[in-house]
Write a protein that binds this DNA or RNA. Structure first.
Lengths: 145, 145
DNA sequence: CTGTATCCCCGATGATACTG
DNA sequence: CAGTATCATCGGGGATACAG
């Protein structure tokens, strides 16, 4: 753990990583790992898109479906229920006819947008570099099987 | 404690999210979305653990397998290859007998640790709140099917 | 020690049809 | 409009055996 290895990593980040490494390395199983538990959600196919779609204002079910793009009602419902259960989203039903329902982020839900934006920003910044690395790799290793 | 109280995102984060929403909302398919492309990786089951395990210093194959815990050789190899292809990790073979191989983060690979630490930190901080939300939800909605 | 090659299973996701 | 129910599929990921 020499200092040059960590290079330009902010101390707070390094601290968080060490803490996490300690927790996850020591035979703690996945079920007991808060981070895996939460991160798996973010990894789900539609979670990120839905959170972002709601980030500025509440959205109705159909609006979300349109904005997210290719999602089925089934998956939209399922993902929204998970988010609601986790306390990131609030569901509000207006018993009009036909009914309308809106979904909005809770405080907890909004609070995840900041770290998420960090990752999204990184992805946007580095995507060219990553694509280039892939092409170089494929050429080195032979893209054809 | 400035204006970022309960509801306000830092301006930079809000900006990133708007930018991303614009890109992903407009009928751009998943294949062309840099962010989905990159984020899907992070969502893969082992990527995060492996990156963190390598975060402080290079690791040998067997060391990674021990540290990550429950991963099979198959998945470890596969995930490492993906990371290598994406330019996040360098693989170095020492033709000793028996051979030894080490994996280390590239500059690009280290650069993702910062946003990742943001998310990991969030997960650690909010996990109690999330667990509480789940219990409340399950009680409201009836845990039994 | 560091992988590859197979086989297999299950859960995540999609498609479609139906309902309050 | 906002879902639910059901069936079909596809691939991620585990287990195991083999190899350089």
């Amino acid at each position: 753990m020499t200092r040059e290895q960590e290079g330009n990593l902010p101390d707070t980040a390094a601290e968080v990583l060490r803490e996490f490494a300690r927790m996850s390395g020591e035979g703690v199983d996945t079920a007991n790992c808060p981070v895996r538990d939460v991160l798996d959600r973010v990894g789900e196919k539609w979670t990120l898109l839905i959170l972002v779609a709601m980030s500025d204002e509440p959205r109705r079910f159909s609006a979300l479906q349109r904005e997210v793009g290719d999602i089925s009602k089934r998956m939209l419902t399922q993902t929204l229920r998970t988010l609601e259960r986790d306390g990131l989203v609030t569901r509000t039903v207006y018993p009009t006819k036909p009914p309308s329902v809106d979904y909005r982020l809770t405080g907890l839900g909004r609070s995840v947008l900041t770290p998420l934006a960090g990752l999204i920003g990184w992805a946007g910044q580095k995507h060219d570099e990553i694509r280039a690395a892939r092409e170089a790799y494929d050429e080195r290793e032979g893209v054809a099987a």
